[in-house]
Lab assay of single mutants.
Amino acid sequence: QIFVKTLMGKTITLEVELSDTIDNVKAKIQDKEGIPPDQQRLIFAGKQLEDGRTLSDYNIQKESTLHLVL
Results as ranks from 00 to 15, higher is better:
7 L>S: 15
3 F>S: 07
62 K>H: 13
48 Q>G: 11
9 G>C: 07
36 P>L: 05
34 G>Q: 06
36 P>V: 05
33 E>C: 01
62 K>C: 10
30 Q>R: 04
52 G>Y: 04
51 D>C: 07
18 L>Y: 05
69 V>M: 10
62 K>D: 12
70 L>S: 15
38 D>P: 04
61 Q>S: 11
32 K>P: 10
60 I>C: 09
1 Q>I: 14
52 G>F: 03
43 I>Y: 15
61 Q>P: 12
1 Q>L: 12
42 L>T: 00
32 K>R: 09
23 D>W: 07
67 H>N: 15
51 D>G: 06
31 D>K: 01
64 S>H: 09
31 D>G: 06
13 T>A: 05
55 L>C: 08
37 P>Q: 12
27 A>Q: 03
26 K>R: 04
36 P>D: 11
20 D>K: 13
12 I>F: 10
28 K>S: 12
10 K>M: 05
37 P>Y: 10
17 E>D: 08
58 Y>T: 06
65 T>I: 14
66 L>W: 01
27 A>L: 03
53 R>Y: 03
61 Q>A: 11
45 A>R: 14
66 L>A: 14
70 L>V: 08
41 R>Y: 12
45 A>S: 12
7 L>F: 11
24 N>L: 03
18 L>A: 04
38 D>E: 01
48 Q>Y: 14
27 A>T: 05
21 T>A: 03
23 D>T: 07
38 D>R: 02
2 I>G: 00
28 K>Y: 06
40 Q>H: 07
49 L>S: 00
47 K>W: 15
69 V>P: 15
44 F>H: 10
34 G>K: 12
43 I>N: 15
37 P>A: 14
63 E>W: 07
59 N>H: 14
46 G>N: 12
69 V>G: 13
59 N>V: 11
64 S>N: 10
34 G>R: 06
15 E>G: 10
27 A>V: 09
58 Y>G: 07
10 K>R: 06
12 I>T: 08
4 V>F: 09
19 S>N: 07
36 P>F: 05
1 Q>R: 06
20 D>Y: 10
55 L>E: 01
63 E>M: 02
25 V>T: 11
13 T>S: 09
61 Q>G: 11
52 G>P: 10
3 F>P: 00
57 D>A: 11
63 E>Q: 08
69 V>Q: 01
39 Q>P: 12
58 Y>P: 01
8 M>V: 13
13 T>I: 13
4 V>E: 01
23 D>R: 06
3 F>H: 03
60 I>H: 02
1 Q>H: 04
42 L>D: 00
43 I>Q: 15
9 G>Y: 04
65 T>E: 15
63 E>P: 09
5 K>Y: 12
41 R>N: 14
53 R>W: 02
28 K>A: 13
51 D>E: 01
6 T>G: 15
64 S>L: 08
17 E>C: 09
49 L>R: 01
29 I>R: 00
31 D>E: 09
51 D>A: 09
65 T>A: 14
39 Q>F: 02
22 I>C: 07
42 L>H: 00
48 Q>L: 02
46 G>S: 05
40 Q>S: 09
8 M>Y: 14
59 N>R: 10
16 V>Y: 12
44 F>Y: 02
47 K>G: 14
41 R>Q: 14
37 P>H: 13
31 D>A: 07
